[in-house]
Design a protein around this nucleic acid. Structure first.
Lengths: 142, 142
DNA sequence: CAAAAGTGGTCTCTATCATAGACCTACCCT
DNA sequence: AGGGTAGGTCTATGATAGAGACCACTTTTG
């Protein structure tokens, strides 16, 4: 049967909604751009920590002990570059650096906290699903 | 300087017991567990694609052309293991496999779509912030 | 029959990236 | 002068993502 006679590079044969199609293009897909960043293992964690209050580098490091300084620096730079946090240097005796959410950063907290809430509410379900999945694999009949 | 309580870490909502060790353990932190997964570059994209409609392996691959089969398989397994999607094998002539959101998977779409909406709404701000950040480095005023 | 093509993957190789942790400069305290 | 804190940078290394070959099975086509 003649399927996909069209030569489109996207090759979407289904009448998918427009938002699904736009997500295919990484260069102009906001979702991928944003999600790739906040999904970066540490970024969301940093945002959530800063949401409580502005914090200094070392405070952040203590709050998230299992991040390396290098990754903390890198993640903070990225968040700063994206305008989600602000970096303020105070010319104190040893110059202290404070990181705080920008207004843009605060605005992302709303959906992000929604996800956090979901995670807390359904984490047990996920763990249970994993146990079942792994168990079913083990006792899979031949 | 304001001393941050050591147990702050993400548990903004709950009063944290002195058992800070449990917070350090990523496998026990629902937020990290969940975010690490849905932030995994492809997983959120797959969920969003499946949200439109249940799809087969090849359909998914066509819908997300720039994922390799290997990563698609791996991501689908992970999502299945976490109970977010269901894998149904139909014993057709060439056995066809259909992936669809589970009820748990549908429930995560609510906060996830919130994040998507945020991303679409603020993507311009982010890009602008990046331009400013990168430009400010070059033309740093004295 | 033989070849092609589609479905649902697995396997291997390689380039990239994150991580740990050593190191560094500057300042303060004792 | 030794040690501690602050805010990082640098490097070696292990894990990981990505590309693409390969596989078993089946239907279609010549």
């Amino acid at each position: 049967m003649p399927r996909l006679s069209e030569g489109n590079h996207l090759a979407v044969a289904n009448p998918l909604p427009k938002d699904a199609a736009s997500e295919l293009d990484p260069s102009r897909c906001p979702v991928r751009d944003v999600l790739d960043h906040i999904g970066n293992k540490w970024t969301a964690l940093i945002l959530l920590t800063l949401q409580a209050q502005a914090q200094r580098f070392s405070e952040l490091h203590r709050a998230i002990p299992d991040i390396s300084k290098r990754m903390l620096t890198q993640s903070l730079r990225e968040l700063e570059r994206d305008g989600l946090i602000e970096r303020r240097v105070y010319p104190t005796k040893p110059p202290s650096v404070e990181y705080r959410l920008s207004s843009l950063g605060e605005s992302i907290m709303v959906p992000l906290l929604g996800l956090v809430e979901w995670a807390e509410r359904h984490h047990a379900d996920i763990r249970q699903a994993r146990v079942y999945f792994d168990g079913a694999r083990d006792s899979e009949p031949a």
